[in-house]
Computed example of a mutant assay.
Amino acid sequence: MKILKKWWYSVEKVFSPPYIYTLDKDLTKKNSNQWYFKEFGTHTYVKKTWEQMLRSNFLSKVKPDDISYISYIEAHKVMTSSVYHISEEKRGGFYNLKSEIKNEPISIHEHDFIKNRELISKTDPFDILQIAYKAGVMRGKNLSSSIVKQEAHAKKTPPLRIVK
């Protein structure tokens, strides 16, 4: 009798899993907003977005490994959407940094970018290097022009007089 109960329990466990839906990673693309789930025991697929899953009772029916995978991908999407990139470079050291959420104008001359550590941490490293390079070149040009002006001012000779 005990053997029959154990056998029945194992058969029941195989044919009635605790989670009805599993993520189909073949159909789902990481950069899309749609997630495809296969229903256990049928050939039915369910298409949901992350927002729909959070608003409904659907997550209680999904395998926990799939939930952790989806939440990791969605968190990565949020992190990359908040990264700033140079959208426009204007004359004279002015830039427009843009993310999917916000647009931020900055100036090299007023040190907006250098003083704002939070903005630096949210900006793409390649764009930080580009802004820093252009700022260094502009400061070098200003420094060399001021040195040339000082040398020209120091070398000023009195005007020549015509002697008759």
Results as ranks from 00 to 15, higher is better:
residue 84 Y to F: 13
residue 22 T to G: 04
residue 130 Q to K: 02
residue 34 Q to R: 15
residue 32 S to L: 13
residue 29 K to C: 09
residue 74 E to Y: 02
residue 123 T to H: 04
residue 129 L to C: 08
residue 107 S to P: 03
residue 78 V to Q: 10
residue 152 A to V: 10
residue 76 H to V: 08
residue 23 L to C: 02
residue 94 F to M: 00
residue 105 P to T: 04
residue 8 W to C: 13
residue 33 N to M: 14
residue 94 F to E: 00
residue 114 I to Q: 07
residue 70 I to T: 15
residue 9 Y to H: 13
residue 23 L to V: 07
residue 2 K to H: 11
residue 127 D to P: 02
residue 42 T to E: 07
residue 64 P to A: 13
residue 58 F to A: 14
residue 142 N to I: 12
residue 71 S to P: 01
residue 152 A to R: 14
residue 70 I to K: 00
residue 5 K to H: 15
residue 9 Y to D: 11
residue 99 S to P: 02
residue 29 K to W: 08
residue 104 E to I: 09
residue 11 V to H: 06
residue 63 K to A: 12
residue 94 F to A: 00
residue 121 S to I: 10
residue 124 D to E: 01
residue 18 P to G: 12
residue 118 E to C: 03
residue 23 L to Y: 01
residue 30 K to R: 12
residue 102 K to V: 12
residue 132 A to G: 04
residue 2 K to D: 04
residue 30 K to E: 08
residue 55 R to T: 05
residue 46 V to R: 13
residue 90 K to S: 10
residue 126 F to M: 03
residue 110 E to I: 08
residue 45 Y to F: 14
residue 75 A to L: 12
residue 140 G to Y: 05
residue 109 H to P: 04
residue 161 R to G: 08
residue 84 Y to C: 03
residue 86 I to W: 01
residue 96 N to T: 14
residue 129 L to Y: 04
residue 37 F to P: 00
residue 117 R to S: 02
residue 118 E to D: 02
residue 121 S to D: 10
residue 103 N to P: 06
residue 161 R to V: 06
residue 118 E to R: 10
residue 17 P to D: 11
residue 83 V to Y: 09
residue 52 Q to H: 13
residue 130 Q to C: 07
residue 107 S to N: 01
residue 17 P to A: 11
residue 22 T to D: 03
residue 156 K to T: 07
residue 126 F to W: 06
residue 102 K to G: 09
residue 86 I to C: 03
residue 138 M to L: 14
residue 71 S to H: 03
residue 81 S to F: 09
residue 87 S to E: 14
residue 5 K to F: 13
residue 27 L to S: 04
residue 68 S to F: 07
residue 119 L to I: 09
residue 78 V to N: 11
residue 129 L to E: 12
residue 131 I to V: 10
residue 76 H to R: 11
residue 18 P to M: 07
residue 135 A to F: 00
residue 52 Q to F: 14
residue 102 K to T: 09
residue 31 N to M: 05
residue 78 V to A: 14
residue 111 H to D: 08
residue 122 K to R: 04
residue 43 H to D: 05
residue 1 M to Q: 08
residue 137 V to G: 03
residue 70 I to D: 06
residue 85 H to T: 10
residue 19 Y to E: 15
residue 19 Y to V: 03
residue 114 I to R: 03
residue 124 D to M: 00
residue 73 I to E: 09
residue 114 I to A: 02
residue 86 I to D: 03
residue 132 A to M: 11
residue 123 T to L: 08
residue 40 F to P: 05
residue 99 S to Q: 06
